[in-house]
Design a protein around this nucleic acid. Structure first.
Length: 207
DNA sequence: CGTCTTTGACCGGCGC
DNA sequence: GCGCCGGTCAAAGACG
């Protein structure tokens, strides 16, 4: 029961820095192209590992996986989730200077619940040229903006499920403060407003 | 024409 | 040491 919330936040980055993709590929010097499409060489400094980016998990009751949060996301991967018939989608902010990533997966217990995990913070304002939601503008670069947008986009009637989620959050003391005032002073953990949107702390509680 | 989604393959880390 | 899993990339295709 509560596992749906805890496991959603118990994740951690795995394969991060990948080295040369095509390094293992044979040299293409003056050779036929009969072989299958091989991966091109992609020099990437492996030492560039991000220390730790803040992560936030949101359990939203929505029918669509892709939640409009005011930013433009590009889907770069999809993987099947174990113990869950629903796949997990990986999105990345289309802004070049913004490395915010988002993982979207449905709860295996409640298909109506979409678990959205944000990793990192937007270094820019939400683009005003949002397709279908140009009226949405984030007041600040912090998550407060998108948080408010979520409230606007997912403001629905309370449901028993919401109570369940809220109760689940109570099980984890850390979940009570998903938004530290030091980081998101404009978005207090006011669960009263979050009716269908129940944020869960995703911060690495391992240390 | 530009942008985005889809899909397969690959890599790194971790567990056993 | 090997195998498994999760995460990411890149190319092609589809769509507006």
């Amino acid at each position: 029961m509560s596992s749906s919330s805890t496991e959603a936040v118990g994740d951690e980055d795995s394969g991060r820095s990948r080295k040369y993709l095509g390094e293992i590929a044979k040299a293409d010097d003056g050779d036929d192209g009969t072989e299958k499409p091989k991966k091109p060489i992609k020099p990437r400094k492996k030492g560039e590992k991000r220390p730790r980016e803040p992560r936030f998990a949101f359990m939203t009751k929505s029918e669509v996986d892709h939640l409009e949060d005011g930013y433009r996301w590009r889907k770069y991967g999809q993987k099947a989730v174990k113990n869950s018939p629903y796949p997990r989608s990986y999105y990345r902010c289309t802004t070049p200077k913004c490395s915010v990533k988002k993982r979207v997966e449905r709860s295996h217990q409640d298909p109506s619940i979409v678990i959205t995990t944000y990793e990192g913070q937007h270094t820019h304002h939400s683009p005003a040229t949002i397709r279908g939601s140009s009226h949405v503008l984030a007041p600040s670069t912090s998550m407060a903006g998108f948080c408010s947008e979520l409230l606007l986009h997912h403001r629905r009637l309370p449901s028993p499920l919401d109570v369940q989620l809220r109760e689940a959050s109570r099980l984890s003391p850390q979940s009570l403060s998903p938004f530290p005032a030091t980081q998101y002073p404009q978005c207090p953990p006011d669960y009263g407003l979050l009716q269908d949107v129940v944020p869960f702390v995703v911060h690495h509680a391992k240390q």
